[in-house]
């Protein structure tokens, strides 16, 4: 019965967790470093527009290609913009 209520199989959860985990393991990028990168990105972007710095998500991912070894990883950042006001974009 519990099958009907479970949204995601634990197998899928494990695969998803491993995908993220192994990529950061392989590029040798610690969570502390990710936090620093995140803070720096927020600092730079906020020069030009108002962003929601608390809700930035960054992730190292292998785009398109299989998750296997040798795939080139890339950095994804999801930065919620609060306001793109014209005076901020021009005057800086």
């Amino acid at each position: 019965m519990r099958h009907f209520f479970r949204r995601k199989s634990s197998c899928q959860v494990a695969k998803d967790r491993l995908k993220i985990l192994l990529i950061s393991d392989r590029v040798n990028c610690s969570p502390e470093m990710m936090e620093l990168i995140k803070a720096d990105i927020a600092k730079v972007i906020s020069k030009y527009m108002k962003i929601d710095a608390d809700n930035i998500e960054i992730q190292i991912n292998t785009k398109g290609t299989k998750s296997g070894r040798g795939a080139k990883p890339s950095l994804y950042a999801n930065i919620p913009i609060v306001d793109v006001s014209s005076d901020m974009t021009v005057n800086r």
Binding site: H3, S9, S10, C11, Q12, A14, K15, L18, K19, L22, K66, S67, G68, R69, G70
Partner: peptide, 19 residues
Amino acid sequence: MVKRGDMMSAQDVVDILAI
């Protein structure tokens, strides 16, 4: 457990480790 979706299959593991 694999059938129930509670364990990764051999193929899943091979896909991840790629050897």
